[in-house]
C-alpha cells in the first residue's frame, strides 16, 4: 500500500433526513492529483466541505497524515498545510493583488494579532509575494485592485495566495468553472506546475481537464462512491457511463 495523505472512513453527512454523503471511503495518495467527479448534486462539494471541516460530519472520520482531524476547527486544519479553494473565486476584492497574497504570507510573521504595529511592517513580505505573483504570471497586476481583474486571473491569484502557505495538500473546487478555453489551458498548466511535491484533490466538471491532469479519479453519485481508478478504468465502467446518461461527455473528452 502506498503512502496515503488523506483518508476518510465511512464519511456521512445528513441534512434533515436527506443524506448528501453516504459512507464515503476515500484515500488520496501523496503526490497525486486526485479528481472527484460526478453528476450535479452527487455530493462532491459536500465532501470538500467535510474534509476541510467547514461542515461537521454526521458520522465517519477524517485522517490527514495519519492523524484524526475529524473534530478540529477549520482554521487549525488549514494550519496543518491542508488548504482549500472555493467554487466561487475566493479573493479579497477590495485589497490589491499584492495584498491578497500577503494575507497568505502574513501568518508566518506571527504578528497577525499585533494591532499596535504599523502595516508597513508587512512590506518585508513584498519580495516573496511578488515572486509568487510572477509564478502565476500576475506580476504586472500587483498594484491592481482585485475586484477589477478578469475572472481567470482571479483564479490564478487564488492559487498564488494558497501557495503562499506552502500547503502540503491543496483542494481545488472546480478550478476551471465558468472559464473560456484560453483561461482553462492557463489554469491547467498552472495546476500541473504547482502539483510538483504536492498532493491535489480537485472537484472538476470538465472531463477533458480531468483526463489530462489527474492520476486517479473517484466518481460520486448520490453521495456514494460509484467507481474509482485511473481515467481509462473509470471511463470504461458501464455504471459510470450510465450515471452520465444522455451525455457522451466521457467519450468526448478523449478527443
Amino acid at each position: 500500500m502506498s503512502d496515503v495523505i488523506l483518508e476518510t472512513r465511512g464519511l456521512t453527512k445528513e441534512f434533515k433526513g436527506f443524506t448528501a454523503v453516504a459512507d464515503v471511503n476515500l484515500k488520496v495518495e501523496r503526490g497525486s492529483i486526485h479528481a472527484l467527479i460526478g453528476p450535479n448534486g452527487a455530493g462532491k462539494t459536500t465532501v470538500f466541505n467535510l474534509v476541510t471541516k467547514f461542515l461537521p460530519p454526521t458520522a465517519g472520520s477524517i485522517h490527514f497524515n495519519g492523524q484524526d482531524i475529524t473534530h478540529e476547527p477549520p482554521a487549525l486544519t488549514a494550519r496543518r498545510g491542508f488548504i482549500r479553494s472555493f467554487q466561487i473565486s475566493a479573493t479579497f476584492p477590495h485589497l490589491t493583488v499584492l495584498e491578497n497574497v500577503r494575507i497568505g504570507l502574513q501568518r508566518k510573521l506571527g504578528t497577525e494579532f499585533h494591532f499596535w504595529k504599523s502595516a508597513k511592517t508587512l512590506n518585508r513580505l513584498n519580495d516573496e509575494a511578488m515572486a509568487l505573483l510572477e509564478a502565476v504570471d500576475l506580476g504586472s497586476f500587483a498594484a491592481t485592485m482585485t475586484s477589477e481583474m478578469p475572472y481567470g486571473r482571479k483564479r490564478a491569484l487564488e492559487i498564488a495566495t494558497t501557495l503562499a502557505l506552502e500547503p502540503e495538500m491543496m483542494l481545488l473546487d472546480e478550478p476551471t468553472q465558468g472559464m473560456g478555453h484560453e483561461d482553462i489551458e492557463r489554469v491547467v498548466e498552472l495546476i500541473r506546475k504547482v502539483s510538483a511535491n504536492r498532493t491535489i484533490l480537485m472537484v472538476e466538471h470538465n472531463l477533458s481537464v480531468v483526463a489530462h491532469l489527474c492520476h486517479r479519479i473517484t466518481v460520486l453519485t448520490r453521495g456514494s462512491v460509484l467507481a474509482e481508478g485511473s481515467y481509462e478504468e473509470v471511463s470504461k465502467n458501464p455504471q459510470v457511463l450510465e450515471a452520465y446518461v444522455g451525455s457522451d461527455n466521457m467519450n468526448d473528452a478523449h478527443h
Binding site: 475566493a90 476584492p93 494575507i103 501568518r107 495566495t161 502557505l165
Partner: peptide, 11 residues
C-alpha cells in the same frame, strides 16, 4: 471581504 477564505488560510 471573504470570511470563509480567511478561515481556509488558517486564520
Amino acid at each position: 471581504e471573504n470570511e470563509p477564505r480567511a478561515i481556509s488560510l488558517g486564520y
